[in-house]
Amino acid sequence: MTWNAARSLALAGLAASFALAACGTNETPNASSSAVTKPTESVRPGPENAAKDAHQRPGHQRGKIDQNAREAMEERARNAASGDPVGPRNTDIPEPEDYGFGRAAATAEGGEVVAYDPSLEGGRMIVPLTVENRGDKRASYTVTVTVKGKTDPSMTKTVSAKVTGLFKNTTWPTQVDVTGIGVTDVEDLVVTLKVAKTINRWQ
């Protein structure tokens, strides 16, 4: 090979090296290397998400309800008298004491009829009564109330009241007016009862 031919080959190789270097500097960068990663934001759940989360935990809610039910049953069992059922009583029908007439002054017919302490209401002397039918059939009652003065027994007044067709296991509230007895102090009065009870055969 002549010196001129060797020189030409060397120059050709050098030119090729420069061309490759030039191509390398113009290479397009990878798209993934230019992507900017944003920091992850912490999102607090809104009310709708909280409700959804609570709905997705039925076991927790059911456990709370079961615990409340057990506590209620235990409380009823503790408060129940010996031999009484634990279940709630029927409160639709009032008992005699539910009327709030105060202290009983006299009773009759085995406790079915109760007269309460007299009271002054609007200038009138009133004796409240309750009649409770404890029998198995409807009944009618004639209640005779006698009020006397403790200091002066001659101060006496007798009044009657009637309760007709009272259903069994029910209580009927009523009252008698003894105004004019001549005694103004209710603490100076004595109340007595006389009762006639009739079973309603026609029911």
Rank of each mutant, 00 (worst) to 15 (best):
K150C: 03
I93R: 12
I93C: 01
A115H: 02
G102F: 07
G83W: 03
A80R: 11
G149N: 05
K157R: 15
S140Q: 10
G122N: 10
T156E: 11
N79A: 14
Y116F: 15
R76K: 14
P85Q: 08
A108Q: 05
T146R: 12
P153T: 08
D117M: 08
T107D: 04
R89K: 14
G123N: 13
L120M: 13
M155D: 11
E109P: 01
T151D: 11
A80I: 12
D92L: 13
P118T: 07
R134I: 08
A105D: 06
P118E: 08
P128F: 03
T107W: 00
K148A: 11
P85H: 07
M125L: 15
S154E: 14
S119F: 01
V145M: 03
D117T: 11
A104P: 03
S82C: 03
T146I: 02
V127C: 06
G83R: 09
D152Y: 11
A139P: 02
M155S: 14
G123H: 11
G87A: 14
N90R: 09
V127S: 07
S82A: 14
K148S: 15
A105Q: 02
G123Q: 12
E97D: 15
V147E: 00
D84T: 13
E132Y: 10
G122M: 07
K148M: 04
N79L: 13
D98M: 05
K157Q: 09
R134H: 12
P85L: 06
I126W: 03
S154H: 07
A104E: 15
V114G: 00
K150N: 15
G102A: 07
D98C: 09
K148N: 13
G149R: 01
P118C: 09
E95A: 15
D136R: 13
A80T: 15
V143M: 01
K150H: 14
E75C: 00
S154N: 13
P128R: 07
R134V: 10
D117N: 10
R138P: 05
I126K: 05
P128E: 05
K150A: 14
R138D: 06
V127D: 03
